[in-house]
Design a protein around this nucleic acid. Sequence first.
DNA 1: CGCCCCGATGACAACGTTGTCGGCGAGGAG
DNA 2: CTCCTCGCCGACAACGTTGTCATCGGGGCG
Lengths: 329, 329
Amino acid sequence: MKDVATAAGVALKTVSRVVNEEPGVTPATARRVLAAIERLGYRRNESARLLRRGRTATIGLVIEDVGDPFYSGMGRAVEQVALAHGSLMFSGSSGEDPRRERDLVLAFCARRVDGLVIVPAGPDHGYLRPELDAGVAAVFADRPGGLDADTVLCANSAGAYAGVAHLLRRGHRRVAFLGDDPAIFTAAERLAGYRRALADAGLGADPSLVAMGPPERAGAALSAMLAGGDPPTAVFTGNSRITVAVLRAGHRPPLVAFDDFELADLLVPGVTVVAQDPMGLGRTAAELLFERIAGGRGPARRIELPTRLVPRGSGELPPAPGTAGPGHR
Amino acid sequence: MKDVATAAGVALKTVSRVVNEEPGVTPATARRVLAAIERLGYRRNESARLLRRGRTATIGLVIEDVGDPFYSGMGRAVEQVALAHGSLMFSGSSGEDPRRERDLVLAFCARRVDGLVIVPAGPDHGYLRPELDAGVAAVFADRPGGLDADTVLCANSAGAYAGVAHLLRRGHRRVAFLGDDPAIFTAAERLAGYRRALADAGLGADPSLVAMGPPERAGAALSAMLAGGDPPTAVFTGNSRITVAVLRAGHRPPLVAFDDFELADLLVPGVTVVAQDPMGLGRTAAELLFERIAGGRGPARRIELPTRLVPRGSGELPPAPGTAGPGHR
DNA sequence: CGCCCCGATGACAACGTTGTCGGCGAGGAG
DNA sequence: CTCCTCGCCGACAACGTTGTCATCGGGGCG
């Protein structure tokens, strides 16, 4: 900018005025400055500008895995909203590691991002407190953080309830639940929805029909259940990785899966899913964030986005005749 | 930092020394400073630091769609390499729009990123010239840019050749090619590989077996070919979106698809693919980039990553008896 | 004709760091 | 005892901007 000023024979400040389209510059002067800018290939140093102004027009996104379709869809939505607000987006993956999440968030804060969208990897966000007090905005997405900040969730419990109820309406009385580690918020919520659906249908909860754990064990868990004395007639899977694990293991039971996935419609039978809305999640979280960045006060909000049941065949199968012997109800 | 200095009763510079772990500070002083830092919850302003030092420890990633599994896998690999080099990553989607790509890149450059990994949306990157001259490093990934910079590609032509040859070995003589707009580099390359495979097998190129265009038209295009007088007995699809479009249209021809996709193994029959290596693409591109950022000189390099043929069933089907009447060869 | 006002421009400080250099005090050597 | 050296520390400028205020000149009005 100094060079431009020299080249155009004006003061630094005048160049600044031209670049920022501030009023009070003669068209003739402005033309001279613009010509010099063009000639020198000058581009304003945004970092310096933002250092001076105090706003960085940058947000940070911390998700579990940039490569996971669910989260990357979310990221895309966040990016779109950021774009609309003239902000750029840092992004990083926590890989479910709370320490890595913390490091990323702090690195973003050190860059003085205006705000953060975080998919919490761990339950404890005490490290965020000083940052929030320092004026950084933060929104938790997909799972609640350990802090009283705006939060956007999917209707995990209600969605699982709807999915299980869908199976019950088809006459199933023994529905297995295959979920992830219950330490994960969404897994626990979905399990709760499953239990509520059974209870509301007047069915007792049979612990032998519930298997919680890492997806790679889901296939074997289901095999064991099916080989047992009183097998399930239908299955509800708690997330896509588990769904895929079950399918890869060769099982094609009557099935409703939580979370939609690419090509679910092309399998035979098509997989009935309780679809979440990753783009909606990202969009909503980013919108809340920018409200806060714009100065929005008030108590933390908690928004639950509805899920949508998408029947595709696997969830509409009746109990296989003979699988559930008489005497069950 | 000023506050910390005051609180600890030392000069600004001493705090800076402590924060940067520079030598020449008495342990006692350092302790006092660290205590003050802790008490005030001070965190170094990275932007200001980097403004002074000239390096931002930041790279920019411009891909076609953050939400596309192929590109987001690539992004994850880039992120990992960036992390290993202590850098953060801006990311943005161009959505195949050259103008948006340009805006993103220039926004990143205005933030003075050290380098860029770009999946080119358009053929012209003249706008990058001044930035490169200004010292920004850039690597093109997946497609070449219109500029002499490091480039990492998949073996598009060789991969397509291998996929088509695979079908020819099974006895197919009329293989259709369904590809994307030939203005897209990868589409054109794959078409070339297809043609080369046919030629090397002594088969003439039948234009009626080639359909290039947007994925949403691929299903109809194949339907038309199959309804024609001399239909193909096998199909080669040029990318995953086209593959999925064909499958959604209900076709299950003998098929080899360029680019792997989630659940390809679970369809019936499993889809034989020519798998690319998105993580390898991202990793390699990022590694080249950081070499340049570290000062690596020398001419632009062009690396082609090999593809891998993954047989899953659909590509091993023989010609359906009767589809290719006698008289063809 | 003189004064005042206003529009255009410029000088300077500040944002939060780090690089450079100089001062100051202690300890060792002559 | 004096001088030199060396280790610790601080003052100041600089990075590239923008905000604040001063300056300068011209035109309108009394």
